[in-house]
Amino acid sequence: MSHSGTLSSASLSSARCERHNVTVTGSNGPLLVLLHGFGTDQTVWRKVLPSLEPHFQILRMDLAGAGPKGPANFDPSRYDHIESHADDLLLVLDELGMDQCTFVGASVGSMVGFLASLERSKLFRKIITIGASPRYLNDGPYIGGFEQEHLDQIYAAMNRDYQGWISGFAPLAVRGLPDSAPVKEFSESLFALRPDIALSSARTIFQSDFRRHLPFIEPPVVLLQTQNDIAVPDQVGEYLKSHIRTATLEVLPVEGHFPHLAAPEVVSQSLLRHLP
């Protein structure tokens, strides 16, 4: 059903695609959309690409604010809601004439996919998420992992000394030694982000609450969850599974919020198992 192979370089050079740095690689297989999360851009998929490219046509894009063209396209008053990113995703796929894809999102990229599927459920054959969370703040019995006080400290630290904050946050998020390659890669990626954009995005993401949207999600969903994810406690995976009718949950035998950086082979295997 997908319009594989109809993507022309002309359509990719449209203003919108240029803005999001839309990149298409891989084979003539079914369309696979990979969407990155906070603090990274589409290059975060670098290590899982080789295993997927032989089987799929792969579309990657940068969310507004991320990637080399990010700063020029980031309007904080527009991107104070995650829905605005979902609109961008939909408009890109719409412009390219895509009528079906399998979607893989990491972190907030997952929520972008979920929100887009509320508008166009038929567009998504399946949604696979890595470290998705509908709400990061604890709320009564709901465990999101953070208290407001804790988040305020994070914002303050980002504001005060962005580089210093990165050196503390990156090892915790990736769950690796500060000198390890994945931590370094994430640190550099965060460092490339303009501090004000990073702060504005972090606020938008961490303060979001999409719990009430979950029952409306229609496409089949696979939730990939890791262990000791600083941003997504185990309970969040369970919560998502019990509130999305179509969801299955798989706990990967890896740690941290960035398994696609830290353990790409595990992620690749899992994705290949779940992909059509």
């Binding site: 809601h81 508008e119 999409f210 009430r212 409306f216």
Partner: peptide, 14 residues
């Protein structure tokens, strides 16, 4: 038609 994605969440239906 492509609707703004905030619509569904706002209304609770498409």
């Amino acid at each position: 038609l492509l609707l703004p994605s905030a619509m569904t969440g706002w209304l609770g239906f498409r």
